[in-house]
Design a protein around this nucleic acid. Structure first.
Length: 572
RNA sequence: GCGCCCGUAGCUCAGCGGAUAGAGCAGGGGACUUCUAAUCCCAAGGCCGCAGGUUCGAAUCCUGCCGGGCGCACCA
């Protein structure tokens, strides 16, 4: 049971009695006590009574004796609540006995499609892909742990006009040579070379155009070459996902091409519903609420004037498929904020068409752009893009060197494993620990930093927990009574019981920086506890109690970091 | 022109209507015969972009400015 809710439940009847109607007790954490209730302040005017008097009466009426050690009226009319040590200890004991650490499986599981990562075939993954991949994976992991049915959708850019030139370039290189280049992960080189030829050589340009026609016409030979490109890229992406500890697998590739045969039926249905309008030769839907530069309604172009389908059609077909055939009730699109308007329009059209009707909802889980040092968007054309594997490799190297330096006892293999967990963790954490809506300037040092509010700090706290148990030679006794005499023990316990509320909040908002902030607070509380409260040198019930606190801290850190896709080595 | 996102310590960022605005980094001062010092403790650091408004109370909600970024019909 969440402490905040427990206190609110106890205060609510007292407030209701005093106010003569239901009142939200407005309980929250406090600097002046464990919790405070602010509701008396707001009631003062309505009741025509001084807020302190209201607070005092609520204090008299509320049954808090078994939960609170002190309830005081403070300041202009706050009710300061100090939780009783035994009550807090009891809650900690209950958590220790719960494999889910107080976080229940949802009563009504949903089918959730998480659309994320979505790199482009035959193009290198750069730091810009990091955000979608990392945030999306955290969302998938978190919702899955809560008991939802999560369908990961890797919406690969595997279709469209660029494939004409890519296939022609592949033919120029020869299949064997091209395959080798692609399998080595030099996708940028491949793409740039094709692009350069396309820009400079009119003959190549013409071949490419014809190749696109052949591809879209389903020419078997062309399709075979196209598939070669796709599978080579896919296997490369999987190596990056593996390095990142991302849970996407080969089964999750749902490229744009996979909706190819649903495009025409989707557009036909829009037509049947009377939503289609011809404009400048293109078939469009004009969803309400979107206006363009000229103040005129903005169309979502579902079929271009040349008869081809663009990505709006693909997104609509995917949406229709996901809510229809897949039966999803929640759709997440983990895509950069610049595409916000596009998704607004797609969702609006989906609603008009009836594919998106309550309780089914779609959310654009947008995130800020990564900017260059000049404060402008990092663009691959400008040569400013940073290859993702380069960043990851650097992170692992740095962390491995640090692991060797800090802990010479580690063998070569373990140092490598630690370096990987710490280095990758640092990169993931750097991306997840800030408000995802904000742009940020690509800061190599920041992403690779192993100091401060970073994953390594949390991993270190975890490794300290494990170290205690290695030396203790025994696990914590789950039935041991938890006593909280020391302030540091109390502070730690207070954080531990807050895990469930944070996870539930994050499952809704998908603001993972709230989870990282929580885990950091927990690790700080544990570090202070570790400094001041000896565990192994304590005896009897104190030792038993502290072992429970350690065990629970370790479990929450591990589970919390796991939801973010970050590893927790046994020792650093 | 319209729309969206963002302006908080020197730097990177928390703070989703409440008391004296909090962390980390950098810089200053302390703590290793100790369960790993990848740690801890102390001090210092602020016209919360600006101006109005709502409210008993605003960094937080509303409006208008200023500054930065992004987007606004057949590329994805």
């Amino acid at each position: 049971m969440d402490l905040e809710r427990l206190l609110a439940d106890r205060l609510a009847p007292a407030f209701a009695a005093v106010a003569g109607g239901p009142v939200d007790p407005a309980v929250r954490r406090s600097q002046h006590a464990d919790f405070q209730s602010d509701a008396a302040l707001g009631l003062a005017r309505r009741l025509g009574r001084p807020p302190r008097e209201i607070a005092a009466e609520v204090r008299e009426r509320a049954s808090l004796a078994d939960v609170c050690a002190a309830v005081e009226v403070s300041g202009p009319g706050f009710l300061n609540l100090t939780v009783a040590g035994h009550a807090l200890g009891g809650l900690v004991s209950a958590l220790a006995a719960d494999p889910r650490l107080g976080v229940p499986v949802v009563a009504e599981p949903e089918t959730v499609v998480v659309d994320y990562s979505g790199p482009n075939v035959a193009k290198e993954m750069h730091v810009g892909h990091l955000r979608s991949t990392v945030i999306g994976d955290a969302a998938a992991r978190t919702l899955e742990w809560l008991g939802h049915r999560v369908l990961r959708a890797n919406h690969l850019g595997d279709w469209g006009t660029p494939f004409g030139m890519l296939i022609e370039h592949l033919l120029d290189l020869g299949e064997a040579g091209a395959a080798q280049e692609l399998s080595m992960g030099d996708l940028d080189g491949f793409y740039r070379a094709a692009r350069a030829k396309f820009d400079d050589d009119p003959a190549f340009q013409e071949r490419s155009r014809q190749r696109v026609v052949a591809l879209q016409g389903g020419d078997p030979a062309t399709l075979r070459l196209w598939r070669l490109l796709v599978t080579q890229s896919e296997s490369y992406f999987l190596t990056v996902y593996d390095l990142l500890d991302v849970t996407l697998t080969g089964d999750d590739f749902r490229g744009e091409s996979s909706y190819h045969d649903q495009l025409a039926p989707t557009v036909e249905e829009l037509d049947r519903l009377g939503l289609l309008r011809r404009s400048d030769g293109a078939d469009c839907v004009f969803p309400p609420g979107s206006v363009g530069r000229d103040g005129e309604p903005l169309p979502l172009i579902v079929r271009k004037s040349d008869g081809g389908y663009g990505y709006p059609a693909t997104d609509l077909a995917a949406l229709r498929h996901r809510t229809g055939a897949l039966g999803a009730t929640r759709l997440l699109y983990v895509v950069g904020l610049p595409q916000r308007r596009h998704f607004e329009m797609v969702f609006a059209v989906g609603a008009q068409a009836g594919w998106l009707a309550a309780p089914v909802r779609a959310e654009h889980v947008g995130f800020g752009s990564i900017l260059g040092p000049d404060g402008r968007m990092l663009r691959s054309r400008a040569g400013g893009s940073v290859k993702l594997v380069g960043l990851l490799t650097e992170a692992v190297q740095r962390a491995t060197a640090l692991a060797r330096e800090r802990n010479p006892e580690l063998g070569v293999a373990e140092a490598a494993a630690v370096g990987r967990a710490v280095g990758i963790g640092a990169v993931l954490y750097a991306d997840l620990s800030g408000d995802r809506h904000k742009d940020y300037v690509l800061d190599w040092e920041r992403m690779l930093s192993l100091d401060g509010n970073t994953a390594p700090y949390l991993q270190y706290a975890y490794s300290r927990v494990r170290s205690i148990f290695r030396r203790a030679g025994a696990a914590a006794r789950p039935d041991a009574e938890v006593s909280l005499a020391e302030p540091a023990e109390r502070a730690l316990a207070m954080e531990l019981v807050g895990f469930a509320a944070v996870v539930e909040e994050v499952a809704g908002s998908l603001e993972f920086h709230r989870l990282t902030a929580y885990l950091h607070r927990l690790a700080v509380a544990f570090s202070a506890f570790y400094e001041r409260c000896p565990v192994l040198r304590a005896e009897g019930p104190v030792r038993e109690s502290r072992l429970v606190l350690c065990e629970l801290t370790g479990q929450v850190l591990r589970q919390g970091l796991d939801l973010l896709g970050i590893r927790t080595p046994e020792r650093l």
